[in-house]
Amino acid sequence: MKVMVPVKRVVDYNVKVRVKSDNTGVELANVKMSMNPFDEIAVEEAIRLKEAGKVEEIVVVSIGPKAATETIRTGLAMGADRGILVEHDDEIHPLAVAKILKGIVGEENPDIVLLGKQAIDDDCNQTGQMLAQLLGWAQGTFASKVEAEDGSLNVTREVDGGLETVKLNLPAIVTTDLRLNEPRYASLPNIMKAKRKPIDEKTAADYGVDATPRLKTLKVEEPAAREAGIKVESVDELVGKLKEKGLI
């Protein structure tokens, strides 16, 4: 089988994000970027399927600026086999991403597309589902367990109030949840090997996709600062204060 894993370059999860002074977006200059954590989980899962002998090839795909090559290399250093960069410098939204991915699926014919359930920058949680719709494939979203069988996948999903297991006929889309696995660290020998793995370079136009955003960001603002609380000495005082505020 062949697995395709789309990976997004996002602001590193450790960075305290700041809004730009003109409120047009968040500050990206000199900010550490890395692979979206959910995508890292997807790469890890693909590698585990490969190590279990279920998968022969893993292709990582990133749509973004030239610098996203680094994100692809991270995937290659973890253990993916080759990469595709669809170079795109401007803002891009889930539907356009899904359309480009559909184009790549058409060329690559993977059996599984494994995506993160969402990217931690815009938190859209749409791309996997949209791609499933565009391709007419089965989808198992928010996966916390993936088991490959002949011609199908059993995907355990984290749903409200419990776990649901669905059986998907291949080809299929899977999106990863946080508890699916713990991604490995790329070892130095694998970092060096990744350097020699091929990365194809494409553009949205190669897949006939118009990636112009259909949504316009009007304004980005910091969340309202929380006011400092007060300390009370006793339960009576607490009840008094709550009454004062008309809360009880």
Partner: peptide, 16 residues
């Protein structure tokens, strides 16, 4: 280089 940077990042994350 890209590899040096990638290795440093891996070690940093491992340590953290």
């Amino acid at each position: 280089t890209e590899e040096r940077k990638a290795f440093r990042e891996t070690v940093r994350r491992f340590v953290e």
